[in-house]
């Protein structure tokens, strides 16, 4: 785990609502694994004060790429970074997705929750990458796809791209058609309402899987206990340290409704 001063290589819009920030770090490129995250401090300001957590989206040689959306002041400042600017990156932090060998892997993402799944897809074979977006402006361009882009299934709330509605609907269809759901494995990341629905249908069809949670974070290292998640096995645990990746069956789903 390192607190590094890194230099922006590139920072560009790849769709109306999505940005990709890149920087070089051999140390991080060699150590970070899918699911883990970094805590950025892009400006030496007291407002915003806290760091912002981000997943890794892609690694190309020693270049780390971050996929992000501008939602508030912190990400707005991030979008203003120019090549050559420096910022602080703390990490790698948290846990990783467990690699699967013999299962049929389905990845389910919502919005920028696609980021850690795309990184995972660089290392893990998968059968389908199912991604849901708010609307056309937030859709991840297919030119960004890892592997065979026929495996990429899209849904948008307004039907402007792909299936009309939530991505969990085609997911449930897929479960219905599967003869042996116990052979499926889900990796999922996105807004809590989506994750809750993914967890619900996984439980209904007896499908195993892992989700990566986005909790508000104070420290990112397990020190403040601000990001607690209620698990069946260990009670409350800090999501930044025992997560952000959790097994679906270990989560107390009712509690998740309140957080995020």
């Amino acid at each position: 785990m390192f607190d590094l001063l890194v230099k922006v290589k590139d920072n560009k819009k790849i769709s109306p609502d999505l940005w990709v920030l890149s920087f070089d770090s051999e140390k991080l490129a060699q150590t970070i694994v899918p699911g883990q995250f970094l805590e950025f401090k892009v400006r030496n300001s007291t407002d915003p004060f806290l760091r912002r957590p981000f997943s890794v989206y892609k690694i190309k040689n020693n270049t780390i790429e971050i996929l992000y959306e501008v939602v508030g002041e912190g990400t707005h400042l991030m979008s203003e970074l120019q090549p050559g600017d420096t910022f602080l990156s703390l990490g790698p932090l948290g846990t990783t997705f467990t690699p699967q060998k013999n299962k049929k892997v389905i990845m389910v993402g919502g919005g920028v929750g696609a980021a850690p799944l795309v990184f995972l897809a660089q290392k893990q074979d998968f059968d389908s990458m199912m991604l849901g977006f708010r609307g056309e402006s937030a859709v991840l361009p297919l030119s960004e796809a890892i592997g065979d882009d026929n495996k990429w299934v899209y849904a948008t709330n307004d039907g402007s791209v792909g299936h009309k509605g939530f991505i969990t609907q085609p997911l449930e269809e897929l479960f219905k058609q599967e003869d042996s759901p116990e052979n499926l494995f889900i990796y999922s990341c996105g807004p809590n309402p989506m994750l809750l629905e993914v967890a619900r249908i996984c439980q209904q069809y007896g499908v195993d899987g892992e989700v990566s949670l986005e909790e508000r974070m104070g420290c990112g290292v397990g020190a403040c206990l601000g990001c607690a998640v209620l698990t069946k096995s260990k009670g409350y645990v800090p999501s930044c340290k025992y997560g952000p990746v959790f097994n679906i069956q270990d989560l107390e789903l009712d509690e998740l409704k309140n957080s995020g």
């Binding site: 004060f49 909790e215 508000r216 104070g218 601000g226 998640v229 509690e255």
Partner: peptide
Amino acid sequence: VGNPMPRIFETPSGMLN
């Protein structure tokens, strides 16, 4: 066990916990 979530929120130049 502590309080239910959410437990923290960032405010100008600080945070609530």
